[in-house]
Amino acid sequence: MATTYTQRAKLARPGPADRNWNVPLNANADALDALAPIGGLCVTPAEIPSSSLRVQVAAGRFQRRDGTVGVFAGTPSLPLAADSTTYIFLTDSGDLIASTSGFLTSSHVPLAIISTGPSNVLGVSDLRVVCATVGSDSRPFLTAAGGSTNDGASFVLGTASGLKIGTAAAQKLGFWNATPIVRPGSYSQAYSASSRTLPAYTPAVASNSFAGIASGQGGATYAQAADLNSLRSAYENLRVFSESSTQLLNALINDLKAMGLLG
């Protein structure tokens, strides 16, 4: 019977009456070993069976924390400590690390946990995570180099510590294509009262001229008490509105200061 092949990986399936089964079986082993999810970044003893305190780490590709893809060239011989548990991983920049104190808490690519005896490798626990999604349209974050969000995107912020943009006043920030600048210098508020409410302004329109002296009284023209009271009322309305505007401005400055947008 003719050799058939599996649907996905196209592995050979010799027929019952075929000879030299070793040929397709060896080809299957090589094909499987070449698959990235199986052979990529695979950690194995340097010899089978193990006769030394060394492991081999295969070449492979991995996803960095910024979404880009890194390439590890592989190493044929990585020395380990005797009678220990060793954690094998790649740093985000692609450096191979063998640590007896555990994995990093920062970004890294876990590969395996190795147990050793006095002179050889006792066991390998494979910890690789394969088939990660990459690409600018699939990452739930912006890369360190910047990028674009989807139209209508929103960011959910924490309610405990929240989000901070910029960690120093000298770092530059700009909005709506404005040239980024450092945080402006501090504002001085000698008048410190503030309010987030601006009352309505009640104008007193001077539609008529002063009436002058009362009818039948002699002497030079002068303002009557009603004229002065009307003027005083208009002035007071203007004073209250100006004070309210200043308090509203103070509140705005205080809020912008609290957010770090003003000094």
Rank of each mutant, 00 (worst) to 15 (best):
T3C: 00
A9E: 14
L11E: 05
A12S: 14
R13V: 14
P14L: 05
G15L: 13
A17C: 02
N20A: 13
V23Q: 13
L25F: 12
N26V: 02
N26Q: 14
A27G: 06
D33W: 12
G39M: 08
G40H: 09
G40A: 10
V43W: 09
T44H: 07
E47G: 03
S51C: 04
S51G: 07
L53T: 02
L53P: 02
L53F: 04
V57M: 01
R61W: 09
F62E: 03
T68C: 02
G70R: 05
P76C: 01
P79G: 01
P79T: 02
S84H: 09
T85Q: 11
T85D: 06
T86G: 04
I88F: 12
I88P: 04
T91W: 14
D92E: 10
L104W: 07
S106M: 08
S107A: 15
S107R: 11
H108T: 11
H108I: 15
H108F: 13
H108Y: 10
I114G: 00
T116Y: 14
S119D: 15
S119C: 03
V121W: 11
L122V: 13
S125P: 02
D126R: 03
L127V: 04
V130L: 04
V130H: 09
C131T: 04
C131A: 08
A132D: 06
A132F: 07
T133S: 12
S138W: 10
T143F: 08
T143Y: 08
A144G: 14
A144N: 13
G147A: 00
G147E: 07
T149K: 04
G152K: 04
A153Y: 12
L157F: 13
G158D: 15
T159W: 10
A160G: 05
G166P: 09
G166A: 06
A169H: 06
A169P: 01
L173S: 04
L173Q: 06
F175H: 11
W176E: 07
W176G: 02
T179P: 08
V182E: 15
G185V: 05
Y187G: 01
Y187A: 00
S188N: 01
L198T: 05
T202R: 09
V205K: 01
V205T: 13
A206Q: 15
S209C: 00
S209N: 06
A211G: 14
G212V: 12
I213H: 03
S215I: 08
S215D: 13
A220F: 12
T221D: 10
D227P: 05
D227E: 14
N229G: 00
N229P: 02
L238N: 01
L238Q: 06
F241K: 00
E243R: 03
S245G: 00
T246G: 01
L248W: 09
L248E: 00
M259I: 01
G263W: 11
